[in-house]
Every structure is written in structure tokens, then in C-alpha cells.
């Protein structure tokens, strides 16, 4: 049975919405096992979301409508980005050409911005601290994302994620060309930073002074908090899709509209995502969190890789 391209597009979004908490739960479970703990159930994030949706939403006295609108705006942004990136198919879907990599990055930035604005207007010191830090580090990692986009643009003459994935699949030479590997590694570091992972942030910490992203949502509760948590899990899936299906391993996607082939791409993607998640859990267990003022070194390393990628591409076409 052949699916229409619009149905596939819908399936992509549903996959991100429906399975994002599963991926978060599975990674937390792996992390706990690596630390010798029993860990939470894999489905725990679903129970957490259900609990939060049934709770009352409280709004700080000083906060305006922005505080309540921000989680909805962020969640909507995380619903739009999956339309632009290759999740299940090798061929571009109709809405996939609405925006390029930068378009996707703008939506992710808009989500981060709205959450930060909401945090800033709560008046809570830790939320404001997190908001300020998140914006600072987002600005520092942004050049890396830009240079990775430039690499894609120079290699494919477009900056469409579908085109880069197709190029990497086209030949082994393209997949292992030094600039592609460097860009992939730089993007990997950016994903580590954007998903609040060690060495940038301890995502499971309850120590406010070390928090960056996590601190921004401290004042939220109830359904708003549920949307933020769900959105955060979706953002993780989106970044994994970009890392895996565009740079690191763009294989295993469906090249036809056949229903079985499209649906098979879902477990294949999650298999690869669990592999990346395992790697992240290993990094979490092997390294310590960097001191706040040392995070710039991490960002500098990511920037270095992306700039070197551009240089060797520009000078030696490597």
C-alpha cells in the first residue's frame, strides 16, 4: 500500500510527538544501568507527563500572559521543525522545502527565546539566571551551527538537510570526506550542548547553581510544565534526527512511499537514536561537568572543528 506524501508528513510529526518521551526514558534507563542503578522505567516520562497534565498550573504574580504562552509557542516550534528534516524518507516531502537548515534553526531558536523570556519575567532568581546563561551559551554555539551549515552549503550547493543526507548516501567518498566528518563531529558537540548534557550541563541535577537550561523552567507547573518537558524531549529527537539522518548515518530511510517501508524506518531510526543515546550516556558517565567559565573552551573546540571543516573544504576541497 502506498501512502500519500502528506500522510507520511503526518506520520513524521506523530513519531516525534509520540515517541520522544520514550527515547528520553530509554536513555535515562541506560544511564542508570551504566551507573549500577536500577533506574526509572522506560515509560516513566509518559507517567510524568500524565501527572503534570492533571496538576494545577500556577502563575507567578508578576508574570503576564507571556509566561503561559511560551510553552505553547515552544511546543508549536518543535512541531514545525520535524516537517523540514529527513526523518523517515530519503525523498523530500512537500513541506520539507518550506525551510532549510537555517529555517529549522530559527524555529529552535524561537522556542528557546520564548522559554527564556517566560523565565525572565517570573522574577524568580534561578529562572532568570538560567535564562541569561542559556542565551549566552546559545549565542556561543550559534557560530558552530552556522559553519556546519556553510559546509553543507558548499558541498551540496543548497542548505537543505535532505540534500546533505542524499550526498552522504551517494558514495563512501562523500560520507568519509574529512570536511563532512569534521562538520558531523562539530554538530555532535553542538547537540551535546543543546540537549543539556555533560560536559556542559548535568541534565538530571537538582543543584540550581550549575543549571542552565533546566533552571529556566523552575517556575512552571502543571500543563505548562508538561508541555515544556514534552517539548524538550521532542527537541532531543529533532537534534538526533539531524545528527543521524543528515550527517552520521543517513541510511535505513525509506526511498519509496510504500507503507511497510516507511513504517520500518521508524524502528530503524529509533535503533540508531538509542545507539547515539548510549554514547551520550557513556559520555555522561565518563566525564565531569565543566565549570561554567570553562564551557567556552568546549564551545571553542566545536567552533574549531567547524571552521577547520570549512577551511579544508575551501582550500583543498577535502
Amino acid at each position: 500500500m502506498e501512502l500519500s506524501v502528506y500522510t507520511i508528513q503526518l506520520v513524521q510529526d506523530l513519531m516525534v510527538v509520540g515517541l520522544a518521551p520514550f527515547l528520553s526514558g530509554a536513555i535515562s534507563h541506560m544511564e542508570a544501568r551504566l551507573q549500577g542503578r536500577r533506574g526509572p522505567r522506560i515509560l516513566q516520562p509518559y507517567y510524568d507527563l500524565a501527572k503534570l497534565f492533571s496538576k494545577e498550573t500556577l502563575v507567578p504574580e508578576q508574570a503576564s500572559w507571556v509566561f503561559l504562552a511560551a510553552p505553547v509557542v515552544a511546543f508549536t516550534c518543535y512541531l514545525i521543525v520535524p516537517l523540514l528534516i529527513p526523518e523517515l524518507t530519503t525523498f523530500g516531502l512537500p513541506l520539507g522545502y518550506m525551510g532549510d537548515i537555517l529555517g529549522g534553526a530559527f524555529f529552535l531558536a524561537l522556542a528557546a527565546f520564548s522559554i527564556s523570556v517566560a523565565a525572565a519575567e517570573t522574577g524568580g532568581p534561578y529562572a532568570q539566571l538560567g535564562s541569561s546563561r542559556a542565551m549566552t551559551f546559545a549565542a556561543l554555539i550559534e557560530p558552530t551551527i552556522l559553519f556546519v551549515t556553510f559546509v553543507v552549503a558548499i558541498i551540496t550547493t543548497t542548505d537543505l538537510p535532505y540534500a546533505e543526507a542524499a550526498t552522504a548516501r551517494a558514495s563512501l567518498g562523500q560520507a568519509v570526506r574529512p570536511s563532512h566528518i569534521l562538520a558531523a563531529f562539530a554538530f555532535f558537540l553542538a547537540v551535546l550542548s543543546d540537549t543539556a548534557r555533560i560536559p556542559v550541563e548535568t541534565h538530571s541535577s537538582t543543584l540550581e547553581f550549575g543549571m542552565i537550561d533546566e533552571a529556566r523552567t523552575l517556575e512552571h507547573s502543571g500543563a505548562a510544565m508538561a508541555l515544556l518537558k514534552w517539548g524538550s524531549a521532542m527537541k532531543q529527537v529533532i537534534l538526533y534526527v539531524l545528527l543521524i539522518n543528515v550527517f552520521a548515518a543517513p541510511w535505513g530511510l525509506s526511498s519509496t512511499r510504500d507503507a511497510s517501508s516507511v513504517l520500518l524506518a521508524i524502528p530503524i531510526f529509533f535503533g540508531k537514536a538509542l545507539g547515539v543515546g548510549f554514547l551520550f550516556a557513556l559520555i555522561d558517565n565518563s566525564f565531569s561537568k565543566l565549570r561554567l567559565f570553562k564551557i567556552t573552551e568546549f564551545m571553542a573546540a566545536a567552533f574549531l572543528l567547524s571552521v577547520l571543516a570549512i577551511l579544508i573544504l575551501y582550500v583543498g576541497h577535502a
Binding site: V5, T89, F91, G92, L93, P94, G96, Y97, I154, I155, T156, T157, T158, L160, Y162, A163, A166, T167, A170, S171, G173, Q174, V176, R177, P178, I181, L182, S255, T256, R257, L308, I312, L313, G316, H317, A318
Partner: peptide, 24 residues
Amino acid sequence: PALLAVSTLAAPPAFSGVADAIAL
């Protein structure tokens, strides 16, 4: 399915690619 028609920058020959990667 919409087809992608982009002109990609040719990958370096295997020897150059590996030599570049090692130098990197």
C-alpha cells in the same frame, strides 16, 4: 516523491581523502 536535483562538490579521491584526514 520529489526528487532532489543538486550539484554536489565531488568527493576527493580515496588517497587524498585519507591523507587529508591524517594531516587533520
